[in-house]
Design a protein around this nucleic acid. Structure first.
Lengths: 161, 161
DNA sequence: CAGGATCCCTAAGGATACTG
DNA sequence: CAGTATCCTTAGGGATCCTG
């Protein structure tokens, strides 16, 4: 249990705290349909019916999920108007929603490697090379999974977004 | 919709394929309790009752979730015996389970930044610096979210695990 | 300690029909 | 196109009690 460092080493005292960011994140976007809607938003889908059709859920579910994701600040509703039509709403990623994408990509990468022989790959649009999810530290090292730890800092540290 | 490159640009033809790695991954570990059990396994928890208590779910739920995660290959059951006791089972991360951790860490990071003022931080145990989830391409660039794309490759490419 | 059995409640989500 | 309304099924999960 070396991953919990410093004050966290006393596992049970920390466990009592109970306010885990992972838990809160799952409460917001922890359903299959919410995750797939985020995928679609990343792919560029903005219209209600397109979400419903491409995610493969009913309109009722689409409506509920979109409302929750807007409420949570991952998506935002924006009015648009096509010529000769009344004004409607479209759904686009917010900054917070865009910052959520690593979650989706990490799932994509894991599923691709372990469940699928899919020929889909993440790429860096700029240079065309394949891309993947990595852990890096502020000192610039790529951190392998068994060297990732968890620590309690005194107050908000500098490393923001 | 520039993120879908090449053959994928025809959004609807690809949509019909319908076998998305994200969806499959969510089907396996897409519940709050499964995700928290993975967090606990990473923290070093191995015992049934510890999972139940620290995740905050009943033993019935613990039993069901652990069995699913073992079945899916993320955890493995290993017998152990304490002196004077009968043999019991403990649950440890497999390689596939360890490779799943970026999903958990990405959720942790997003929740920490957007929902929480938690003082918990990911760290690189080796050097002590704070760590975070990044996208990098094979050419070594750090890829910002708006430069991540999705492409269909001819067959399995070299970049494996 | 590591479960299984039972009962009950809630949220996710399908199917279908209807509306502005 | 973008929803709302109604009805129904299923899975997650709490509570409680019991077992090896």
């Amino acid at each position: 249990m070396t991953v919990l460092q410093g004050a966290l080493a006393d596992r049970d005292s920390w466990s009592a705290v109970g306010h885990c960011p992972i838990e809160k994140t799952m409460a917001i976007a922890g359903t299959k349909s919410a995750m797939l809607i985020m995928r679609e938003a990343f792919y560029g889908t903005t219209r209600f019916d397109d979400f419903a059709q491409r995610v493969g859920i009913t309109k009722a579910a689409t409506s509920a999920r979109l409302a929750e994701l807007v409420e949570a600040g991952l998506l935002t509703k924006r009015p648009y108007r096509e010529p000769g039509q009344r004004s409607r709403e479209e759904y686009v990623l917010t900054d917070a929603g865009t910052e959520f994408m690593p979650v989706v990509w990490a799932m994509f990468e894991w599923g691709r490697k372990h469940l699928d022989d899919s020929r889909l790959r993440l790429t860096h649009i700029g240079c065309g090379a394949e891309a993947g999810v990595e852990i890096r530290c502020a000192a610039g090292h790529e951190v392998p999974p068994d060297e990732v730890g968890m620590r309690l800092v005194r107050r908000a540290s500098v490393r923001g977004s």
